[in-house]
């Protein structure tokens, strides 16, 4: 883990997360669950759709994105694809948190670059397990 990893551009210690969902209730739930993961989280940013997420990603160095699929303006599939094509964003792990859907769509998301998929309604323990698996118990990004 590099000295820069875990530090946002603002120089804050701890992880920077981005939660992307058009539902304010779900954003609050994911934020709450992140707080229970036992990781040192400096800040949790929020976005209501993929386009807002890209704006946030341009302003903050984010360590993990948790994104829904079904959103207005830009959905989660396009967000994952755009991030995968951007050299500055491709390395940021994305966890999809979305309603159950076809197996084909899940496979496509994982092939495009999403690191994991959590079905709604998600258990906070399951979110913790996925986040810790990706970021490690001390916040190091595991490839």
């Amino acid at each position: 883990m590099s000295a820069e990893q875990g530090q946002g551009r603002e120089g804050k210690m701890g992880l920077q997360m981005l939660v992307v969902d058009d539902s304010p209730v779900t954003r609050k739930m994911v934020r709450r669950a992140i707080g229970l993961c036992g990781l040192e989280v400096a800040e949790v940013h929020e976005a209501g759709n993929g386009a807002e997420a890209l704006t946030q990603l341009a302003s903050h160095r984010v360590d993990l994105v948790l994104a829904d699929i079904n959103m207005p303006v830009m959905n989660g599939v396009e967000l994952v694809e755009r991030m995968a094509r951007d050299p500055g964003l491709a390395a940021i792990p994305v966890v999809i948190v979305a309603t159950p859907m076809s197996e084909e769509r899940v496979e496509r998301l994982l092939d495009t670059g999403a690191r994991a998929y959590l079905a709604k309604p998600f258990r906070p323990e399951a979110l913790r397990d996925v986040v810790v698996q990706i970021l490690g118990p001390k916040g190091a990004v595991h490839v």
């Binding site: 207005p72 076809s102 197996e103």
Partner: peptide, 26 residues
């Protein structure tokens, strides 16, 4: 809204299955 979103996904996968492409609105 979110509960109906989850219901929509559950209904689609339960009734149509997970092997067919499906789309859920907002």
């Amino acid at each position: 809204s979110e509960i109906l979103n989850v219901i929509g996904g559950a209904f689609i996968t339960r009734y149509f299955g997970t092997q067919v492409p499906s789309q859920l609105g907002l």
